[in-house]
Structures are given as structure tokens and as C-alpha cells.
Amino acid sequence: MELLSASKAFGGSQRVYRHESTACACPMTFAIYLPHQAEEGPVPVLWYLSGLTCTHQNVMDKGEYRAAAAANGIAVICPDTSPRGEDVPDEPGNWQFGSGAGFYLDATQAPYAANYRMESYIRDELPELVARNFPLDMSRQGIFGHSMGGHGAITLALKNPERYRSVSAFAPISQPSTAGWSRPALEKYLGPDEAGWRAYDSTLLIADGHRLKELLVDQGGADGFLEEGLRPQLLEIACATAGIPLQLTLREGYDHSYNFVSTFMAQHIAWHAERLFA
């Protein structure tokens, strides 16, 4: 790993690293916040997955998570949202696909299958890397995210319930297989057979028998993507049908920005802390 930056915050250390990724076949960058409690021994891990167009930097600059992470003694890891580089296939100008829009899936279609393996990267490669290099308690992991990252957090948790003790989301894409801003990306990454898309759709994973112990979701009521892209009511129906406890709160007046995310960030981290330390 190459250390790109490090600075002290709330008694802990905010760092950014770059490493060569086998899963994505290119260099990948991630941020990690280690609270001061990590100096005494391993601390729980909370993964934060960002949304479309973002890198690890957006939540670092605007997410306001460090004070809450330090108060609760939890490390927060913020991966990038996609592979990047001159040799990585992309569609410049298309913010819903390619660079910055990996959708936390493993692509099966050429030319994307060689690099766009974000599910394997988040699930396997990056956890193995950080476990070897930082004082982390990998038996206590939670995951959350925003928008595309909320979608990724929920689908990863549904498929790996033994891995994550807690899962939450800010304004997740609830049914990407039918949403206008995600359906074209799924077809390019996974091909035209929609049966293969089910593994990356929260509502369809639930319909297929995958379960969570519980789920926390916050959604802005003034979010411009609410009705056509996010549609939390579909997730609400799926959870109710499957008997999954869902705490879904519509936050009136809040939009899709990090002003919304940062407002409720500390509440989410405290909610995760209750479960990670249980």
C-alpha cells in the first residue's frame, strides 16, 4: 500500500491509501479513519459506500463522520466507487455508467468484466488487505452507503448476512433493475438476460429468500430522484412481505446531497455502534 495522505482528526487518524487491486486489475484508492481507540487494540469496522459520480473523497470532505466514529470507537472505511485509469473502459460524459458508477457488482460482459469487479473488491480483496494492515476487529463489521452506495450496502448485506452485523442506507436505489438511471448500466455490465440482474437488486434478492435481521433507511422528502430513481416504497413492500424489520424515515425538506447525509450521519453511526458492540 502507498500512503497518499494522513491527518489527525478527533484524536484519531484519517488516511488515504492506494494499492494494486487484483479484483479490479488497476490501482485502487480508499480512505480509512482510525479512531484513537485503535491505539489500544482492534476496533469494529463500518464500511461506507458512496454514490454515483463520487470517489472516497466526497464523504471525507462532506460526510462529517469522524466525530461520531471517534466517539463510538469505530473505524470507517470509504472505498472508491469504481475502477479507474486510462486502460479501464469507460463512457466519458455518462455519469450513470463507467468511471464513478461501478454499482458494486461484478461485471460479466466484455470489455467491462476485466475491471468492474467491485463486489469482489469490497467483499473479499479490500477486507483481506485492511485486516492485515490495521488494528480492526473483523468479527464486528457493519456497512452503509448513499444512493448507489446504499444499494450496494443492502445487496452486499443480503448476500453476506454472516459478515455484516448491521446495515443502513441514505436514499438507496431500491430497485435498480427497473430504475431509469441504473437499468442501462446493469444491461451493459451484466448482459440482456435480466435473470442475472437479480443478484444486484435489493427487492429481488429479498423476493428470492435473502434476509436481513433489520434495516435502517433515511430518505429525503425533497429528493429530486425520489419518485423515479429511488422509490423507497418498493423496498418497504419487499421488507414487509418478507418480515424484515425496516425503519424507514422520510426526512421532509431534505434533498439528495451531502447536506442530507451529514445531517443524519451521527445517528446512523450510533445505530451501528449499538449493534457492533452488542
Rank of each mutant, 00 (worst) to 15 (best):
E2H: 14
L3E: 09
S5W: 07
A6S: 15
K8Q: 12
S13G: 00
R15F: 00
V16K: 10
H19L: 15
C26K: 06
A38R: 12
A38T: 10
E40G: 06
P42H: 13
V43S: 05
W47I: 10
L52T: 15
H56C: 05
Q57I: 05
M60I: 14
D61W: 13
K62N: 12
Y65D: 00
A70L: 07
G73K: 09
A75T: 09
P79A: 07
P79R: 08
D80A: 14
T81D: 01
D87S: 13
D87I: 02
V88M: 06
W95N: 03
Q96R: 15
Q96A: 14
G102T: 04
Q109F: 05
Q109E: 15
Q109T: 14
A110R: 14
Y112L: 10
Y112A: 07
N115G: 02
Y116M: 06
R123F: 09
P127F: 14
A131C: 13
N133H: 15
F134G: 02
F134V: 09
P135Q: 08
L136D: 00
R140V: 03
F144P: 01
S147H: 03
S147D: 00
G149S: 06
G152A: 06
I154Q: 04
T155W: 09
L158P: 04
P161Q: 11
F170A: 09
P172A: 13
T178D: 04
S182W: 05
R183Y: 12
A185K: 08
E187D: 08
K188Q: 13
L190G: 02
A195I: 00
A195V: 03
G196N: 06
G196T: 08
Y200H: 12
T203N: 02
L204I: 05
L205H: 07
L205G: 04
H210W: 11
L215I: 14
L216D: 01
V217E: 04
Q219W: 08
F225V: 00
L226D: 02
L234V: 09
L235W: 08
C239E: 04
C239M: 10
I244N: 01
P245E: 02
L246P: 02
L250Q: 03
L250A: 00
R251N: 03
E252A: 15
H256Y: 05
Y258A: 04
F260D: 02
V261Y: 01
V261M: 09
T263I: 00
Q267W: 01
H272S: 01
